[in-house]
Amino acid sequence: MLVNGEKKDIQDSITLLDYLKNEGYNPERVAVEHNGDIVPKNKYQEELLYQEDTIEIVHFVGGG
């Protein structure tokens, strides 16, 4: 799978939520685009990822 432009090996059909947790992301602090479409926050548990997919993860920090 292509993650932020980098090739990564993933377990096929892992949920986005599990992938984020495994990679150390706080799911509450990211916005994710999956194959070009933003994933609504309440869909992370059902969004399935596959090897040929592309995802972009933006990780947010506090301050404003």
């Binding site: 509450e28 602090r29 916005a31 933003i38 506090g62 301050g63 404003g64």
Partner: peptide, 18 residues
């Protein structure tokens, strides 16, 4: 988007883009 909290930034952006 000019919020202070990271969670709210992520929430707003996910909501508006979808």
């Amino acid at each position: 988007e000019a919020f202070d909290k990271a969670e709210e930034k992520a929430m707003l952006i996910s909501a508006l883009l979808s």
